[in-house]
């Protein structure tokens, strides 16, 4: 390894997720692709929306109001922030997992980019930026729906947006890092195996207190739980210093994921 190679992944971190000038070209490419495939991009937003409507219409009365830190919260208002967090996560993961694998192994888009002045760091950073953009778009749209439905009651709720971007960065970075280790499409079954239980059990649909003590402890370790807690705190205006732990957890995921991705993409593409 030359000194140059070790220095590059570290450069990702202080730059944050704004991207280098060259990595923005990678983002631009994705924008072009989705100009003709916009229906895929737009339709991704509807899934959490349908969930919210279904819950609001069908389950809200059956479950009844829940007690969150001493205040009664309508069930739909309880679930809405977790769906926002989930949509930020899914938005980031779409391109960070399947699509990135497709580009790495099948369409060889990255090989083409490397024949130009772009280098592997630009590719990794550009794709991560795009994942954050996509996750952020979904979260913002969902936030507007929540506002229209009357679930946004305080200015503090605006903090949902940076929280969603952080979640998108965390899941995007880790998703990309995991993708660089995938050998075939079959391996993605494992991703589903991790995501579905997480979606179902991370206090997304009911308070974590439903579980016995040991299971609560396990659930609290999952990244989606951290994101959901953060989003719910922002939406309901329950801001505690303890939420900083969730922020730190997600930020650590983003940084570690980005560093591993940078290294692996370099290894895979420059052979």
């Amino acid at each position: 390894m030359t000194p140059n190679q070790t220095a590059v992944p570290l450069r990702i971190v202080p730059l944050g997720f704004l991207g280098t000038r060259r990595s923005l070209r990678v983002v631009e490419r994705n924008v072009f692709v989705y100009r003709s495939g916009w229906i895929i991009l737009v339709s991704g937003f509807f899934e959490p929306l349908f969930y919210l409507l279904s819950i609001g219409l069908g389950l809200n009365h059956l479950v009844g109001p829940l007690d969150v830190e001493g205040t009664k919260v309508a069930y739909t208002a309880f679930v809405a922030p977790s769906l926002l967090a989930t949509s930020a996560m899914n938005g980031a993961l779409f391109d960070a997992t399947y699509n990135m694998f497709f580009k790495l192994k099948i369409s060889k888009v990255y090989d083409t980019m490397l024949a130009t002045p772009l280098d592997p760091t630009d590719v990794a950073l550009g794709e991560l930026t795009w994942s954050v953009v996509r996750g952020g778009l979904y979260a913002t749209a969902f936030f507007l729906v929540m506002a229209v439905m009357g679930f946004v009651t305080s200015w503090w709720s605006l903090l949902l947006l940076p929280a969603a971007l952080l979640m998108a960065a965390a899941f995007g970075a880790v998703g990309m890092a995991v993708t660089t280790f995938m050998r075939s499409w079959q391996d993605f079954d494992l991703v589903g195996l991790a995501l579905i239980p997480m979606f179902l059990f991370s206090a997304t649909f009911y308070p974590v207190t439903v579980y016995p003590g040991w299971l609560q402890a396990v659930v609290k370790l999952t990244p989606l739980y951290q994101g959901v807690v953060l989003a719910r705190g922002m939406a309901l205006g329950h801001l505690h210093p303890v939420l900083l732990l969730s922020v730190a957890y997600l930020a650590a995921m983003a940084i570690v994921g980005a560093i591993i991705t940078g290294r692996r993409v370099r290894q895979l593409l420059l052979s």
Partner: peptide, 21 residues
């Protein structure tokens, strides 16, 4: 060939140029 199958002929040229800034 490694062309970008998801794009048009014109956009392939355009984006490649953009990679060169």
């Amino acid at each position: 060939d490694s062309l970008d199958d998801e794009l048009t002929v014109e956009d392939n040229l355009y984006l490649y140029g953009r990679y060169f800034d």
